[in-house]
Structure formats: C-alpha cells, structure tokens
Amino acid sequence: MHHDEGEEIMLTGCYPVLCTADVSASANFYREHFGFTTVFEADWYVSLRHPDRGHELALLDAGHESIPAGYGEAARGMLVNLEVDDVDALAARLDAAGVPTVQALRSEAFGQRHVIVRDPGGVLVDVITEIEPAPEFAAAFGR
C-alpha cells in the first residue's frame, strides 16, 4: 500500500528488540520468569508475546548481519518495564531462581514498588507494581 504525501501512516506494531549474545537463554528467561510464549523462533531471532494482554518483545543475536556494525551490544541506560500485579511474590521467585538483582525491591514515592533484575543478555528489567503515590506526586497523574 502506498500512502500519498501528508497522508497519515498507521502504526501496526511497537515492541522492543533486545540484542543478546545468547538468543536461546534470553528467550527462555522471558518465557520461564514472565510467561511469554513464542510467536517465531530461529537460532538468531525469537519473537515473544504475552498471552494475557498481547505485549510483545523480541530477542536478536547481537552478531547478526542485520545489525549495523558497532550496535550489537546490550543497550545501556535502557530498561524494559514489566508491570505485574504482585512484584513482591515475583521478586521472591526471581531471587530463588538465581536471577541477578541489580536494584533490590523497594517502594518509590512516585507510585511504584519495583525490583530491577538483569536478563542473560545484560538488559535491565524493571519489574513494577503500581502503588499509591505520595501526595507530592499524585497531581502528576492524569487521574
């Protein structure tokens, strides 16, 4: 389909693609700990979708030819946020499974209780449950 100049282009998808040295290990991490299921799987790329709400993410071999030279490392300063209904329970399970914790479970005044873990490819995963924000942050929410 060709769009004329100025005609709006429809966004049909949006999801992170995370570079990793071990696609299989990273895919297993998201399947095992967060319940994602496989949509497509090759040795260099795995597309995952969560059955509850259809959220997607994908894993890509950092050395794959489709990645421009010098860009295959795990992104620094980027987090993948996964919002769950019970971060305390999940944090305990992640810890028991030996998942590396980068920031211990804590509550934030801006309305989150969260733990930050590291996936096998080095990506930071911020696991969050929303909590009531402190009064000074309450007005920032469009509720």
Rank of each mutant, 00 (worst) to 15 (best):
T37G: 09
R143S: 14
M1T: 12
D85P: 12
A140I: 12
A109V: 12
S66E: 09
T12H: 10
L105A: 08
E32L: 12
H114W: 06
H64S: 05
F137Y: 14
L79I: 12
T38C: 03
N81Q: 15
P16E: 10
V39C: 06
D43Q: 12
T12Y: 10
T101I: 14
D61Q: 07
H33M: 03
N28V: 14
P16V: 09
P51E: 05
F29Y: 10
A134K: 13
E32V: 13
I9M: 11
H3L: 05
H2C: 07
E73H: 13
G35Y: 04
A74E: 03
A27C: 08
G72M: 03
Y30V: 01
V123I: 14
G35I: 01
D88E: 10
Q112D: 14
H50I: 00
M1D: 09
D126R: 12
P135F: 09
V99H: 00
E56G: 01
G13K: 12
D88W: 04
G77K: 01
F36R: 00
A89I: 10
V125T: 01
P100C: 00
H114G: 11
P100G: 07
V87G: 06
F137E: 02
D86V: 08
F137V: 09
I9D: 07
P51K: 02
M78A: 15
I116T: 14
S24M: 09
S47P: 04
F137I: 09
L48D: 05
V39G: 06
G35Q: 02
F137P: 07
E5W: 14
A42T: 14
V23R: 00
G98V: 04
S47G: 13
G72H: 05
A91Q: 00
R76M: 14
I128P: 00
E83D: 10
D43S: 15
H64I: 01
A25P: 08
D88I: 02
A69Y: 06
V117C: 07
R53D: 13
L60H: 05
A25L: 04
D85C: 00
G70Y: 03
P133H: 01
F36I: 02
G6A: 07
L82T: 01
R53E: 10
D126F: 11
S24Y: 03
D4K: 15
I9K: 06
R76F: 12
G63Y: 00
S24H: 08
G6H: 05
A138G: 10
T38D: 04
G13E: 13
P135R: 07
I128W: 10
I131G: 01
H3A: 10
G122E: 03
D61F: 01
I131K: 03
E136R: 09
L57R: 08
